[in-house]
């Protein structure tokens, strides 16, 4: 069976000149051949020697000929029909089919949104937790090694707590840290005047927990501070800094991979989702640290509501609840509830 003439342009591969050509596909049994007819000459090549490119969208199909030349098909619909009539298909034909129907596109939209959301919500944290197990805890201390130095220079001032009080609090801290299975003895408690950040406590990946004088003064009793220190030890024991690092890196790669494909300023659009996702991870880590503190307090006959009371006082001083999609910590009500405080 032979198909009717199909218009194409022939390029010889040696110069940029183009020749008008007509094509025909002849198929008999398992053997198919392509006939190229130009002004004056007819050439026939076995179909197996021709590399038939698949079309993407409405672009022209390109056929690579064995002699280095190529054909750009003009009558694409006619060529497609001829290919089909000859029973020939390219390997990419199924993809092209998916790309040409709106209902598959709709399935793809749902798959993409659910897939990426699910991966960010569950996949990335699970993978990070698993990956971190292969990294010895001593490596954590290399993260952000200069944070305390920078804070000392820009924000903190030397503590005004007495040496006796410092020793007393260090005793409490060591008690918490030592009781935690798998924890290292390199955890250390430091005191600083909080400067512009005021009442606060932070756990640095190097194993240093910093307690500000302001928070020490805000606490009504040492049980409240036990809760705070347990929360910070929770961050260290669960290696949140390392996990955050892995999760943030994976998120950046993923989001840039998906949305950063537009050149120029529009790739800025990739920044917003990255910020939202990392804030969500941060809130998850705070929940985990709160849960750790509540569990430790429960085991050591300290009422978890003591920590809740301190958090409440802290929020009051900072001027209201700081929850929301951009916040690094969960909303106050949620945290109080988790600690068994006032709903």
């Amino acid at each position: 069976m032979t198909t009717s003439a199909i218009r194409a342009r022939l390029y010889d591969g040696r110069t940029s000149g183009a020749l008008d050509a007509t094509l025909a596909i002849a198929a008999s049994g398992h053997f198919a051949s392509l006939t190229i007819h130009t002004a004056g000459t007819d050439t026939s090549v076995p179909f197996t020697a021709v590399h038939v490119g698949e079309r993407v969208g409405e672009t022209h199909r390109i056929l690579q000929l064995p002699d280095g030349g190529s054909l750009e098909v003009i009558d694409d619909a006619a060529f497609d029909a001829a290919l089909e009539a000859a029973g020939l298909r390219t390997a990419e034909a199924p993809i092209r089919r998916l790309e040409s129907r709106w209902r598959y596109a709709l399935v793809a939209v749902v798959t993409t949104l659910l897939g990426s959301a699910g991966f960010l919500k569950f996949g990335v944290p699970a993978l990070a937790a698993r990956a971190v197990r292969f990294v010895p805890p001593s490596v954590d201390s290399f993260i952000a090694t200069d944070t305390l130095r920078v804070l000392d220079r820009t924000t903190f001032h030397p503590t005004t707590l007495t040496t006796a009080r410092q020793a007393q609090l260090r005793g409490i801290f060591t008690g918490i840290a030592a009781g935690v299975s798998g924890s290292d003895t390199h955890f250390r408690l430091e005191f600083r005047d909080g400067g512009s950040i005021g009442a606060n406590a932070l756990a640095l990946p190097s194993g240093i927990v910093v307690l500000t004088d302001e928070l020490e003064q805000l606490a009504k009793n040492d049980d409240e501070l036990r809760g705070v220190l347990a929360h910070e030890v929770g961050h260290l024991v669960n290696r949140h800094a390392m996990r955050m690092l892995v999760q943030a890196s994976a998120t950046t790669l993923l989001i840039v991979g998906v949305f950063g494909d537009v050149s120029g300023v529009s790739s800025l659009a990739a920044v917003a989702p990255t910020v939202l996702v990392t804030a969500a991870y941060s809130r998850d880590f705070e929940r985990e640290a709160d849960a750790f503190a509540a569990r430790w307090m429960g085991q050591h006959q300290v009422d978890p509501r003591r920590l809740a009371a301190l958090l409440e006082r802290l929020a009051e001083r900072q001027g209201g609840d700081q929850g929301g999609f951009l916040a690094s910590h969960p909303g106050l009500q949620e945290r109080l509830q988790a600690l068994g405080g006032n709903p």
């Binding site: 993407v56 969208g57 409405e58 672009t59 993809i95 998916l98 790309e99 040409s100 129907r101 709106w102 598959y104 596109a105 399935v107 793809a108 939209v109 798959t111 993409t112 897939g115 990426s116 991966f119 991979g257 998906v258």
Partner: peptide, 26 residues
């Protein structure tokens, strides 16, 4: 000659395949 509606289908199908294959198809 690109048509955004046509390219939308190409883009989203290939993106979904990339996600399903954990990036290999990218």
């Amino acid at each position: 000659k690109a048509d955004p509606k046509e390219y939308f289908r190409i883009w989203i199908v290939n993106l979904a395949l990339t996600i399903v294959t954990l990036g290999i198809y990218s």
